[in-house]
Each structure stands twice: as structure tokens, then as C-alpha cells.
Simulated scan of single mutants.
Amino acid sequence: MSGAFMGPPWQMDWVDTARAARDSLPRRVRDLIDAVRAELVTVEDPYFRGVDNLPDLPEGCRISPLLSTVPSGLHVCHFDHGRGWIHYTFLRRTADPQIVVEEVFWQ
């Protein structure tokens, strides 16, 4: 391996509590989360969301930094028109970059 920055598809890892929360949701909501996951692991940059670089997220989903003062930190994907969210970070490493899902919530 040359040590160059790797590109998509990215690996996605789930904190145990986030995986358990996702697995306990109704099938329709899990399918929506899976569609968000599919977009995040294939988009060139899971953080950048400019006007000309919008991903093909499902209807009612949007992504933003959790804190505007930390644009490279924890991000939130609101889904199901704001009824739920996924908190995730993107670890930009030369070897094995990955997205880590830290929390899933839906009401």
C-alpha cells in the first residue's frame, strides 16, 4: 500500500448501544437508517455538504455538524423528517478510514 488517502466505500462501525438501538426499531425505520448508511459509506466526503455536493439522502434527511464550531467532529443525520437522528464521526486515517456511529435515536 502506498500510504495514500483511501476513498469510498468507507467502513462503518457501530457502538454497541447504537447497533442495539437500531436493531430495536420498526422495520420501516431500520430500512431508512440503512438507506442513510448506504449514502454515507459511498459519498466522497461524509462531512462536506455544500450546495453542489448534496448526497442522495432519503426524503426527510439532512446532515450537519453537531457543533458548528467543530466542523470536523461529531455529525448528526436527522432522518424521518426530524423524528430521529444518527450521531457519527468520520475518522480520516490513511489506513482503514471509517465512519463510527455513536448514537441512534427515533421517536
Rank of each mutant, 00 (worst) to 15 (best):
R27K: 12
G50I: 06
V15N: 05
M12S: 02
W10D: 08
E103D: 09
R19S: 10
Q11S: 11
H75K: 03
M6Q: 11
M12N: 02
L66M: 10
D56P: 12
A4H: 02
L74M: 00
Y47N: 11
L91D: 14
L67Y: 09
G7R: 09
L91M: 13
D80F: 05
F90K: 08
V36P: 08
I86R: 07
P71A: 00
W14K: 06
E39H: 00
G84K: 01
D96F: 10
G50P: 02
T94S: 14
P9W: 03
T94H: 10
W85G: 08
I33Y: 00
V100A: 04
V104T: 03
P9V: 10
L74E: 07
W10F: 07
M6C: 10
V15K: 08
S64L: 03
P9Y: 01
Q107D: 14
I33R: 05
L74W: 06
L32T: 09
P46Y: 05
N53Q: 14
D80N: 01
E102H: 09
I99G: 01
L54V: 09
F79D: 03
I99F: 05
R62I: 05
G73C: 08
Y47L: 08
V100Y: 07
P26V: 11
E39G: 00
F105C: 10
F48Y: 14
R92L: 13
A95T: 15
E44K: 13
P97K: 06
G3Y: 06
G84P: 06
W106D: 06
P55T: 05
P26N: 13
R27H: 13
W85F: 13
L57R: 01
E102C: 04
